[in-house]
Amino acid sequence: MGRGRAKAKQQKVARKLKYSSGGTDLDRLRSELGVAEDEGSPSGPLGPDDPYTEPQDDLVDRYADLADKYSESDK
């Protein structure tokens, strides 16, 4: 019997979130997260010191021999 009231309340909150105007205070959120305004991601989402970000040319050089191998086998 109590499930009906809880479900109705959840639906009310969900509707409020779905149709709200999106009045998010970004400055307050920034202060809560401890992010400075001038910070950003200079070289993508992972950062400049991330070992998984490689320049595109390095990848091309690394796999050039495979490209040659597969292009010869298609002929």
Rank of each mutant, 00 (worst) to 15 (best):
L46V: 04
A67T: 06
Y70L: 14
Y19Q: 02
L29C: 04
D65L: 01
Y19K: 06
L26V: 01
G2I: 01
K18M: 09
T53K: 00
Q11E: 15
A64E: 15
L66Q: 08
E72W: 06
Q10A: 13
T24C: 00
R5W: 07
E39M: 11
S43P: 00
K9S: 09
D65W: 07
G34P: 06
L33D: 02
L59G: 10
E72A: 15
E54W: 15
E32P: 00
T53L: 13
A14V: 01
V60Y: 13
Y63N: 10
V35L: 15
K75D: 14
L46C: 08
G40W: 13
S71G: 00
G34L: 09
G4I: 01
K75G: 11
A6K: 14
S41G: 04
K16S: 08
D25R: 12
P51S: 05
Y52C: 03
R3S: 14
A36D: 13
T24P: 03
G44I: 08
G22T: 07
D68N: 14
V60D: 13
S41K: 12
Y63G: 05
R28L: 11
P51G: 02
D61C: 00
A14F: 07
R5F: 07
K9D: 07
G2V: 04
A6F: 05
D25C: 05
P55Q: 05
D38N: 15
R30M: 06
V13Y: 07
E32N: 08
G2M: 08
G40D: 10
D61M: 05
L29K: 11
P55S: 03
S71T: 13
D27M: 01
D74L: 15
L66G: 11
Y63C: 03
E39C: 06
P51F: 10
L33R: 11
S20A: 13
D58I: 12
R28D: 09
R62H: 08
D65V: 03
S41P: 04
D74E: 13
R28S: 12
S20C: 10
G40E: 11
D27H: 06
S73M: 12
S31N: 09
P45K: 11
A14L: 06
E54S: 03
D57C: 01
G23R: 04
A6H: 04
K18A: 11
A67C: 04
L33N: 06
G34Q: 09
D38P: 01
D50L: 05
P45E: 08
R5S: 09
R15M: 01
K16H: 02
Y52R: 10
K69Q: 10
G34S: 05
K7H: 12
D49E: 14
S43H: 07
G47R: 13
M1W: 08
